[in-house]
Computed example of a mutant assay.
Amino acid sequence: MSKYRAVIFDLDGTLLNTIDDLAAGVNHVLALHGYPVHSVPEVQSMVGNGVARLMALAVPEGTAAEEQSAMLAEFREYYFSHSEVYTKPYDGIEELLAGLQSRGIKTAVTSNKFDAAVKKLCDKYFGSLITVAIGESADTPKKPDPKMVEKALALLGVGADEALYVGDSEVDIVTAKNAGLASVSCTWGFKSREFLISERKKVLGNADPRMMIDEPSELFSAME
C-alpha cells in the first residue's frame, strides 16, 4: 500500500503534450509583428517557466519592452482560444489518473501556464480525474516558488509528506524540493532522460532510478 494520499502533477510535458499548440501560438504572434518564426523543437527548448518567459525568449533580441508586453497579451488571447487544436494527453495518462482515483489517491495539477488555461485544459481533458488545478496568477507565483504546491496541498487536505510530485523538467525537481515533497521525473515530456538524471543529481544529490519513469503506469511502483 502506498504511503502517499495525493499526487501533484505538472501539466505541459507531463499530462498533456501541448507543444504544437504552444509553438503555433508563439509563431502566430511573431508573424503578426513581422518577426521570424521558430521550429517546434526551438519553442520546446523555451518552455517551462511560464508564458511571459516563453515570449521573452521567442522575440528577437532588442525588442522593446512595450512591444513585448503587447505580444504577451496577444499570445494569451490567441492561445486561450487555440489551446486544444493539437494538444492531447500522453498515452497512458487517462488510465493512470483513473487508477489513482480508484485507489483513493487525490490528484492536483500545478503549472506555470496562466491559471485560466490550466483550468480550461484540465476540465476538458480530465474532468473529475483532477481534483485541483492551479496555474500562475497575480497571487500565485510561478514555480519553483513553492506557494502553488502549498496551495494545492491545502485544497487537497494533505501534508507535504503525504504527497508525491510528478513532472518532466528541472523546474519541477526544484519545485518539489522547495515544497518538501518527494518527486518523480517522467521522461516522455519536454526534457531528455539524461538531462533529468543530471538535474536530479545536481538538486537532490542522487538520481534514484525508482523515481525516474518512462511510462505513466510505472508511477504505481514509484509510489510503493
Rank of each mutant, 00 (worst) to 15 (best):
R5S: 14
T14C: 02
T14L: 00
L15A: 07
N17F: 10
D20Q: 13
L22E: 05
V26S: 09
H28V: 01
P41R: 12
E42I: 05
V51L: 12
A52L: 12
G62T: 08
G62I: 08
A64E: 08
S69W: 14
E74R: 05
E77T: 11
Y78F: 14
V85G: 00
E94W: 00
E95W: 13
L96G: 09
L97V: 02
L100S: 11
L100N: 09
Q101K: 15
K106Q: 11
N112G: 12
F114D: 04
D115W: 15
D115K: 08
K119T: 06
D123F: 03
L129I: 09
L129F: 12
V132F: 04
A133Y: 09
I134Y: 13
E136P: 03
P141Y: 07
P141C: 04
D145H: 13
V149G: 00
V149M: 00
K151Y: 04
A152L: 04
L153I: 07
G157L: 00
V158Y: 14
L164R: 04
G167L: 01
D168V: 14
D168I: 13
S169Q: 10
E170W: 10
T175R: 04
A176N: 02
K177L: 14
K177P: 03
W188D: 14
F190C: 01
K191Y: 06
S198W: 05
E199A: 15
N206G: 11
D208I: 04
M211F: 14
P216S: 08
L219D: 08
L219I: 07
F220L: 10
A222L: 06
A222I: 04
M223H: 13
